[in-house]
Nucleic acid binder design. Sequence first.
DNA 1: CTGTTAGCGCTTTCAG
DNA 2: CTGAAAGCGCTAACAG
Lengths: 352, 352
Amino acid sequence: METARVPGTPTIREVAALAQVSAMTVSRVLRGSPTVSQTNRERVEAAVKVLGYRPNAVARSLRQRHRTGTVGLIVTNLGNPFYAALALGIEAELAPQGRRVMLTNTAGDPASERDAVGDLASRQVEGIILVPAGPTQAYLAEELPGGPPVVMVGRPPSGIDADCVLVDDFGGAHAATNALLAAGHRRIGFLGNPPSVYTGSERYRGFCAALEEAGVPLPDDYVRRAQQDLASAEAAADQLLALPEPPTAIFCTNNRNTIGAYRALRRNQVVATISGFDDFELADVLTVPVTVVTYDAESLGRHAARLLAGRMAGGDVDQSTLPRRIVVPTTVVTHAALPSAGTASRGVRAEA
Amino acid sequence: METARVPGTPTIREVAALAQVSAMTVSRVLRGSPTVSQTNRERVEAAVKVLGYRPNAVARSLRQRHRTGTVGLIVTNLGNPFYAALALGIEAELAPQGRRVMLTNTAGDPASERDAVGDLASRQVEGIILVPAGPTQAYLAEELPGGPPVVMVGRPPSGIDADCVLVDDFGGAHAATNALLAAGHRRIGFLGNPPSVYTGSERYRGFCAALEEAGVPLPDDYVRRAQQDLASAEAAADQLLALPEPPTAIFCTNNRNTIGAYRALRRNQVVATISGFDDFELADVLTVPVTVVTYDAESLGRHAARLLAGRMAGGDVDQSTLPRRIVVPTTVVTHAALPSAGTASRGVRAEA
DNA sequence: CTGTTAGCGCTTTCAG
DNA sequence: CTGAAAGCGCTAACAG
C-alpha cells in the first residue's frame, strides 16, 4: 500500500526521497531556513520542480496549531455595494499578509450569523470580521471561549467586548442636516430605519441635534420609518408628501430610502431636496437637488482588517488591551439639480 | 506535559475521557453514526456540552484527504456590482452544502490570479471558480496537475479544458441592436471594449450581425473603443457626437461605457438613445431613452457553483465528462426617457 | 456496538 | 548543518 498515491499530489517525503535528504531538510528549504547547505538546497529545489510539489497548507496548519492564515468575513448582504467595498478593502489588506478571506452572507439572519461563527471557528480561522445582523452578539462569549478575535463593523459590539470600526453616523447626519438648513430649508422630513438599528438611531440623533441647534421644529408626522427597500421607502415618502404642509427637504438614513424618496417625488411631480446617507451613481443628474453623506467603505474594511491583524497570532496588540474603536469620518456632497440654475459642478464637497 | 493544554480548546480525547468512552465513539457520535448505543451517545453529548468542544475541521480535512469543504473564488473586481452578485450567488449555492468560499480579488492582474490559484490549491480547496483576468489560462495545466476542478465565468477557457458559464453576449447585443432598429434608428454608433476582451468581441459581433441583417451600414468612424472607466467612455462618446453626421443611438458594451456615453450626451446637450449591456439603477429616470441588456449575475454564480459541485469530490459528474458550457440568457429592457410622452412604465421587457 | 492501531502531511524537538 | 522520533486532532481500517 506504500505506492498507492495519486501521481499529482506528491508529499514532502517523496521530495526528500528524490533529493536524497530527509523530510526535515525539505521542510527547511521550503520555509527558507538559512541552516541548509547550498548543495542540499539545490537538490531539494530541483526535486520540488521535477515532482511539481506543492506544500499542503492543511497539514502545516494542523501541526502549527491554528496558524491557518484564514480570516472569516460575515456580512448581511454582499449585494449591497457598501459591503462589497468593505470586502474589497479587507481582502486588499489581508492578501499581502498571506491571509485568505472566507466569505459568508447571512442575509440578515442572526441564526445564520451564529452558525457561521461556529463553522468558521471550527475551520480554525485566525479571526473574524463581523457585520452583525442581530441586536446582540452575546452568544460570541459562549461560542468562542479562547477562540478567534472578532472585529465588528458598522455598529458597536453589544453584549460582548470587541474592537470595532464605525461610521460617523451622528456627525454625518448632523452635517447633512446643517447643509439643508444652510440652504434655507425649515420644513425637513425624516425617512429612516427603525431606531432599533444602531445606524438608524445614530443618524436620527444627528438629524434631531442639528434641527434643535437651529431652533427648527420637527413635527411628529415629519418622521417616517421604512425598511431597506425601495417600495417601503416610496410609500413612506408618499405619506410625507401628502401632508397638508409637506416638507421641502427629506433626509433619508440610507441609500434605499434616498432613492425610494426620489422616486416618490418624481411620481408625484414634486420638487424637493433629497438628502441621505450613502452617495450613489447618477445622483448628480436627477431633477431635484441631492445632498448626500458619503464615506469610504473600502477604508472601513482596511481599518477592520488592521484591527484584527493586531489581535491575531503574531499581532502587535496585547490581548489585555481594551477594546479599540475607530470612527471613520464622513463627507457631505451636494449635487446640483439637473434643470436648476445653480452651480454646474458635479459635486461640492464639504468636510463633515 | 500531558495536561499543558489551553482550556478553551478541548480535543476529542478529552471528550472521550470525560464520557468514559474511546475517541472513536466520540467521533461516531459527532458524525451522527447510527452504530452508537443510546447510552454512549448521551454521555458523549453531555461531555461535549460540558467542555464546549468543537471539532477541528483542519484535522478532519487532513485525515479525510482533501475534503476541506472550501472553494476558491477569484474575481477581477469585487467593487463591480456584477461580481458582487456573482459571489452572492455562489455563496448562496455552496453554503447549504456546508462549503465555504475563499475570496480573492485580482484587480485584473494575471500574475495575481496565478498566485491565487497556487495558494488556493495549497490550501486544498475542492474547486475553484475563476473569472479570468488574462487572455489565457494555460498555466492551470501545469499549476494544477490532479488538482481541484476549475469553472470559468464570463469567458470561455483558453489554453485548457474547463466547464464554464457564459452570458449570451452575442444574442444580447443582437437583440438590443434590433430594438434600436425597430425604434427607427439607422445611424447607430458603437462604444465598446477592445476586441481582445472576449465579451467585447462577442458583443461587437452581435451588434454587427443585427445591422447587417437589417441592411444598415456601419461607417468605420461609428466604432469607438474605450476602457472600463467613465472618463475614457465619455471621451469616446464625445468623438461620436462630434461627427458631421452623429449617430442617433449609441450601443455600449458595458455599464461604464453606457453611463459615460450618457454623461457625454448630457454635457453636449444632445438627445440620442443610449443602449448597452448591464442594467443600472435610475436608468429609467434619465433624460434620454435607454435600452439595456440585462441578465441575472447571481444566477450566473449559482450555475457556476452547480457545475463545480458536479466535478468536486462526491459530485455526480464523471471526470471524463467533456467540458460543459452554460450560456445564461439576456433580456432587453427599454426605459422610457424622462420627458418623453411615451409609455410611462418603468421598463418594457422583451426576451432576447 | 466498541475499541485499537495506524497514519493523513507536516513540523517541533532534540540528538547528533 | 542534518536527521530520527514524535505527534498536531482526527478518522479509516480492522478486530473484537
